[in-house]
Design a protein around this nucleic acid. Structure first.
Lengths: 391, 391
DNA sequence: AATCTTTGTTTATTGACTAGACAAACTTTG
DNA sequence: CAAAGTTTGTCTAGTCAATAAACAAAGATT
């Protein structure tokens, strides 16, 4: 059923608007909020005093006068609570403790070899519990735990398949919910990365942003109309399995000529080993390229070119404002980005090409964790709006 | 600036909600509206009486009693105004006059050979004016004119490029606005088709729908989260120029191996002529196939297979609820749809495949005009909400 | 005929916002 | 330095739209 509109909704929305304004423009005075939002001064005053009562914001001394009484500046009370945000990767788990502005208070990484579900989950619990211990005491405590995973995640937070971990059907959200009594979010790693870059990274001023997470495979996160787009059941963004060679080689996904067969870390290493590099890794190849080895440079440029083919498709499909390249292959930035740009310059349709900016992820290894932090924080503020409801 | 929430907004939204409920569930009583929407009976009564004053809805006698007083049924006053909705195609212009429920009152088609902008626009004006004359007198008269065009259209309604018409930079919305003093909408043909199928066609119960308009070229309209997705400046959906063969032949768009080089009407005819059909057309080939000519059947199945490659990509990219195939190649439905399905069955990832339904457009040649009608009607109701505003 | 149901209107109340008055605190000006 | 002007933030009165509850109208049920 559609939402019905009444005064309670009005108040909730206006309060959220005031809070958002403070988040974005802090430090800011009540008067400025009124001006920026269009709300009446009195309304802002009353909403602000409620937010202060709820410890979500703080007064912080007076600001500069602009020819009259000096304003009382308001700040987000970023220490009112903390999030635990995790990037569960293929060979390591990266976890951070953040405050409500997304500042990283604490960071831990655990590496692992064995992909076994139980073992990895045990490490995950350890990591989360450690971060939890490091959280300062606060009004709201840990307000959410979020985990980004390299696989197909349902809207209910079940991992249906994480090929590079060899996992199938792991109901991670449910499992975490049994361990920790706080809101849990489980999301695909590329979706999280996209949101991280949108909220804290290179996409802060974009509403149409496509984030390509290029690592062992390729995953894509879509920010459309300012929001994460997940498709019917959460499986959008499988652009790694977009055919770019219709009679190409078979992919283990069942499709043919998938993008990630040509433009991922795996593809790079395969090609490198064919050219004589033994036990190659991205780091090795980039190092070789840095040392001027033309064979390595060519490998990376070829990879960039293939990335460009897929990104050109993205540009045609979405007419985005930004395409952001992130995850491990960002390491090779200096070699792949020019190659991608050349491909776009040559092949993309002018109208779409002129609109788009190509960028590397600003948050680098933190794109995914910061996205999870953003989800946690957003969820907390949304829920706290509903806490004090009319009866 | 974000929207601020006050009572006026509440009323506007609730009124819109009541109107929407009547649109969807008419005939319906005030009491049922209250129950369905969750609004108070009194609130519904007062909003309904305003809508009646504005002639947007009608009372229509009493309904069946369910054990008490008989309800007064309410209907949308579909004759309060009319829309003129046009599909400006490559060889003909199809225009319809519709009422506010999207019923077609009058339909006209003008065929043309010469693509010259001025000549075609002259025909367009003639068509619109004729339809206008056929509109019954009504409270609001013609509430909007909408034109769907096979090309790249900006959010301002300028046709930047219509390759199959040979048009460049035609500010159609502005030009029509000078002729007619009603709201004008100009939209890409595939976007309109997608919306038409969403509102009146096969997609009425879907919120995630991708419409592939397969004709001379391929255009795609995206309904995401129940809304038309247009990208940053309106150029999304250029999936006809998605590379599906990375080292494929050059497309006139500047890209290589574009989908529409393999899976469009143009591609079909090219292949047919290579196989000995002279001056082939879709109609001819389908007829030949119907007569059992295996050469023709193979051509169509090959085409369907290529369509399937692109549609598999769509399924991976969007995780849609429905993929709808429309426009001229719908003619070959019997041959291409099974081929598409085989390709999807074989190649698409299970999770995404299980969610998706493959359909042909229900509105057939009317997908685009009905989409334009839906735009017109929606715009009218939105604007009429704002008419009687507080001061 | 009496009672129960359902529909739709009316009335009193609630609550959130706005406009405008006002006090406090500061800057500018003569 | 005092007077005047500005800006900030609070307070009060008034408005408006929604709700709850009473009520009237019109039917069904027993």
């Amino acid at each position: 059923m559609s939402q019905t509109w009444n005064q309670h909704v009005v108040k909730k929305e206006n309060k959220a608007l005031v809070l958002e304004t403070i988040q974005e423009k802090a430090p800011i005075s009540r008067a400025s909020i009124a001006q920026v939002t269009g709300l009446n001064k009195g309304t802002v005053s009353s909403l602000v005093s409620e937010l202060i009562d709820e410890k979500l914001i703080n007064e912080s001394g007076t600001g500069e006068s602009s020819g009259g009484r000096r304003p009382v500046m308001l700040l987000l009370n970023e220490r009112a609570g903390y999030t635990i945000s995790v990037d569960l990767g293929v060979k390591s788990i990266l976890g951070v403790l953040t405050d409500l502005r997304g500042n990283i208070i604490n960071e831990k990484r655990i590496r692992f070899q064995n992909d076994n579900v139980d073992e990895v989950l045990h490490l995950l619990y350890t990591l989360i519990s450690e971060l939890k211990l490091n959280a300062p005491t606060s009004e709201y405590g840990i307000v959410g735990i979020g985990v980004g995973v390299p696989g197909v995640v349902t809207t209910e937070g079940e991992i249906l398949l994480a090929p590079n971990l060899g996992w199938k059907k792991v109901p991670l959200r449910k499992m975490l919910a049994e361990h920790y009594q706080v809101p849990i979010t489980v999301e695909n790693e590329a979706n999280a990365g996209a949101y991280g870059e949108k909220v804290y990274g290179v996409g802060q001023f974009s509403t149409e942003l496509v984030y390509a997470s290029v690592s062992v495979g390729i995953g894509v996160g879509l920010i459309l109309d300012g929001k994460l787009y997940k498709g019917l059941r959460g499986f959008s963004g499988e652009l790694g399995h977009m055919t770019i060679e219709k009679d190409g080689v078979d992919c283990r996904c069942g499709n043919k000529g998938c993008w990630e067969l040509y433009a991922s870390e795996k593809a790079l290493i395969e090609q490198a080993e064919k050219k004589g590099y033994k036990a190659a890794s991205v780091e090795h190849i980039v190092e070789a390229a840095n040392n001027g080895e033309s064979k390595a440079i060519k490998l990376l440029e070829q990879l960039g070119d293939y990335l460009g083919v897929g990104i050109t498709n993205i540009i045609h499909i979405f007419n985005p404002e930004q395409v952001v390249v992130g995850n491990t292959l960002q390491l090779a930035e200096n070699y792949i980005m020019p190659a991608i740009e050349r491909r776009i310059e040559k092949n993309a349709i002018g109208f779409n090409k002129n609109d788009v900016q190509l960028n590397v992820a600003k948050l680098k290894k933190h794109s995914t964790v910061m996205g999870m932090a953003a989800f946690n924080i957003e969820k907390f503020f949304k829920s706290s709006e509903n806490e004090i409801m009319p009866n």
